[in-house]
């Protein structure tokens, strides 16, 4: 399984300000390695975020997202102690889920 995501969910009023860093190569399929072979595509395709198990944000993305993707988004109606989880799935079917507590340190 891939390395854990780094997620930060800080609370501003009732809005959770979420920033996430995913560890992923995001290979475009256009790059060649040192010996001239094309490096096959390997990139995250879908991302979902849930607040206390309820979907709040989602994304379908392409290989044009930078390596080790960073995203930020804002979730309404959050309070301290809520659980925010993020899941990604890549084009090889690998997936990873990580969870943080909103407003937690």
């Amino acid at each position: 399984m891939a390395d854990p995501m780094k997620i930060r969910a800080s609370l501003q009023g009732d809005v959770a300000d979420v920033r996430v860093l995913m560890a992923h190569p995001m290979e475009t399929g256009q790059r060649k390695d040192a010996s001239g072979n094309v490096v096959p595509q390997h990139f995250i395709q879908t991302i979902t975020a849930q607040l206390n198990g309820k979907p709040v944000f989602g994304a379908d993305i392409s290989q044009a997202i930078s390596r080790n993707p960073v995203f930020a988004f804002k979730v309404k109606g959050a309070k301290a102690g809520d659980k925010l989880s993020i899941t990604w799935i890549d084009n090889k079917g690998d997936k990873r889920t990580d969870e943080v507590v909103v407003g937690g340190g």
Binding site: V15, R19, A49, L51, K54, P55, V56, F57, G58, A59, I61, I65, S66, P69, V70, F71, A72, F73, K74, V75, K76, G77
Partner: peptide
């Protein structure tokens, strides 16, 4: 579904 109309990406 409950997110503000904002996104940051790279």
């Amino acid at each position: 579904q409950g997110a503000l109309p904002f996104v940051h990406l790279r």
